[in-house]
Amino acid sequence: MDHNKVKQKRNNYELFMKSLMLISTLVTGLLVIFLIAYVFVKGLPNLSIEFLTTKPSYITEKIGILPDILNTVYIVLATLVIVLPLGVGAAIYLTEYASNKKVVGLIEYAAETLSGIPSIIYGLVGMLFFCQFLSMKTSLLAGALTLVIMNLPTIMRTTQESLKTVPVSYREGAFGLGAGKWRVIRTVVLPGCVDGVITGCILSIGRILGESAALLFTAGFAHAVNGIKEGLVSPGATLTVALYVYAKEQGEFGVAFAIAAILMILTIITNLAATMVGAYFSKRRNR
């Protein structure tokens, strides 16, 4: 009889835990589906060619998001151009040069700290340092530089990870043939970290596309159409900042959802790209 009781108890436990797991997973899954569906249903009908290719006009009282798209592209490009050499260089230093454990520890601790700092603090310090101290004013470049600091740990980590997969024997082989350190890095190590750099780029692009708090006070929220040169030195809203302003300050929910739909599509694309690149490179490596 006691035996039966224990059995009953075990069965109940089993059932309870199993249903909790299934419910939780279902909730998570449905949440994702709901978010995507809701944003698309509300946003896609508001998308049109005109909406994507014009700027907001007070005369026709129509809103277009061309300037925001351009600003986003500029800021992504500017950030990547600056952060790539920094991040890859730091990773190469850590894996190829650094011999002092304390220095390595310090750099890694710094990178960890950076990835934990909230974006609003980046925005604030970016405003103080780039906009005021370096007198860049509120501009896309100041925003991009702020994002450089934010994304530095990402690029560094992904590059470091792929550098670790370059076999030591390759390096030794090159050294054995009489190559200097710099030559080894250029010809053996750098080609080996391409996958890490690409993954890092995709992750960073995703992060930049989604960033808003760090850009509010550094890049501002203007909607002017500029070329890249002018654009970088003048203030401008990226898509996320534009979404925030349209939704919270102007109550233009149709426009906000249209931008949200675009951002959702971009998020899906960057995620798929990250997965595909990861699969491609791990397949190539295992061959």
């Binding site: 949440l31 989604g210 949200a260 951002l263 959702m264 899906i268 995620n271 990250a274 997965t275």
Partner: peptide
């Protein structure tokens, strides 16, 4: 896993809007 990554990638303003 793909869905969870997507959840991580959705910009915070989109969460705010919804």
């Amino acid at each position: 896993s793909e869905a969870v990554s997507l959840l991580a990638g959705i910009p915070s303003v989109v969460y705010g809007l919804v």
